[in-house]
Amino acid sequence: MSNVGMIIEERPANIGNFMVGRLLPFKGKRMVGPYIFIDHMGPTKMNDHENLDVAPHPHIGLSTLTYLFEGSIMHRDSLGTEIEIHPGAVNWMTAGKGIVHSERTPEYLRHSEKSMHGLQIWVALPKENEYMAPTFTHVEANDIPYWEDGDVTYRLVAGEAFGKKSPVPVYSKQFFLEIHSLSTQTLNIGQHLFGESGLYILEGSVEIEGNTYGPKQILVAKNATLCEFVIHENTTVFIFGGEPFPEERFIYWNFVASTRERIEEAKQLWLDQKFGQVPGETTFVPLPPDYGAKPASSQPSA
């Protein structure tokens, strides 16, 4: 019996002036462990008058994980944080009860040709952390756990796996692991995983039970502890997931919560502009049309 429970294809989505490939949420599988949202940005080239400009917008009930392969983003938030992220580093912003941030091309790059490629990820917070004070952590690339096993390299971007722990301050049991192989070989890593797991193919291909899968796909395992696959040469994949929550999650725009009431509260706060301001910013993204708080899953995750 196959351990591939679902295949999720990347779909185009517009985040303002930038197109991305959306992976999560997906109609048939809204979350993998605590991971509730994944966008693949690029790869794209921008000319001397094209820039990434995501104006100030709010979040609640989640942590954002920004991870770049190419390019640079200037992050600013209502805590007063202003920091540029480069490839391999991690921006980890925990919204808790509420935070506002913007993401833009740094000023020194705005009038030159540039590239952009990376992942934008949301990790839902446990119910007991939904009203925590917001925080921001930047982790440099050199501080991310890295190790090699023959032709295979591993980076533990967030969480715990393989007896190692990332310095990214997560709030639930989870893992986000980058694997790159220079040669074709079989990997059996299920004994290092737990909860639910998904495998995202960034480049190259993998083979599972005689079937070959390529880029821009997430394969969701039926059982994380049975994670075994053939990784082909020059392939990069991400393994992510962890323990699912016992409660359902609702998602509306940039808000994630365990109740619809919390979503409604956040919507009103943003309409009243009571989330806080991002220093140096004068614009903001308005609340979108009200389609209601959608369940992040059709039933509780566990």
Rank of each mutant, 00 (worst) to 15 (best):
A221N: 09
V206K: 07
W122E: 00
Q299H: 09
P126S: 11
R262C: 05
A293I: 00
L193M: 08
G118R: 02
K165P: 07
E265R: 10
F69L: 08
L199M: 08
N3M: 09
N211T: 10
E130C: 02
S78D: 12
A55I: 11
I189Y: 15
V278Q: 02
S172P: 05
F162R: 02
G159K: 02
D272K: 10
A133W: 09
T283L: 10
L177Y: 09
A302H: 10
S102N: 00
G276C: 11
S297T: 09
F245D: 03
G159I: 08
I263Q: 12
K274Y: 14
K165N: 11
L109Y: 14
Q120D: 01
A158D: 09
E82T: 11
E9T: 13
G195A: 07
Y171Q: 08
N91Q: 14
K27V: 12
M41A: 15
A296Q: 11
K274E: 15
S197H: 10
G118D: 08
R110L: 03
Q120C: 00
L52S: 10
I83W: 12
D77R: 02
L187G: 02
V20I: 13
L156I: 06
F229Y: 11
S166P: 01
F284E: 15
N142F: 04
E113N: 12
S301P: 13
G198S: 13
H101M: 01
D48V: 08
T184S: 15
G21D: 09
S297K: 03
I38N: 00
A124P: 00
S102Y: 01
Q120A: 00
V123T: 03
E209M: 04
P288S: 08
L65H: 00
E207I: 06
G150S: 05
M116Q: 13
S2A: 12
G163I: 06
P58N: 14
L177M: 14
K45L: 14
N211I: 02
I73Y: 07
G80Y: 01
L193D: 12
I263F: 10
H57M: 02
P289A: 10
Q273H: 13
E243D: 15
N3E: 13
I7K: 08
S297L: 05
I218L: 00
N188K: 09
L68M: 05
G198A: 13
V157E: 02
E178L: 10
V90C: 02
G88Q: 05
L219D: 14
F250Y: 12
D77S: 03
S63G: 07
L199H: 05
I38E: 00
A158R: 02
P244H: 14
I263L: 15
L177F: 03
M19F: 15
L23Y: 05
K97G: 11
Q185G: 10
F37M: 01
D77Q: 03
Q299M: 04
F240S: 01
W147S: 10
P106R: 09
W253A: 03
G33I: 04
W270A: 06
G195K: 01
N17S: 05
Y171P: 01
P300D: 04
G276T: 05
H59M: 01
D149M: 02
K165T: 12
D151N: 14
P167N: 07
Q185S: 13
E209Q: 05
P215M: 14
P134F: 03
C227R: 07
I201K: 03
E233L: 07
P56Q: 15
Q185H: 13
S181E: 13
F250R: 10
F275R: 11
W122Y: 01
T66N: 06
L109K: 14
R30T: 12
E265F: 08
L52Y: 11
Q120S: 00
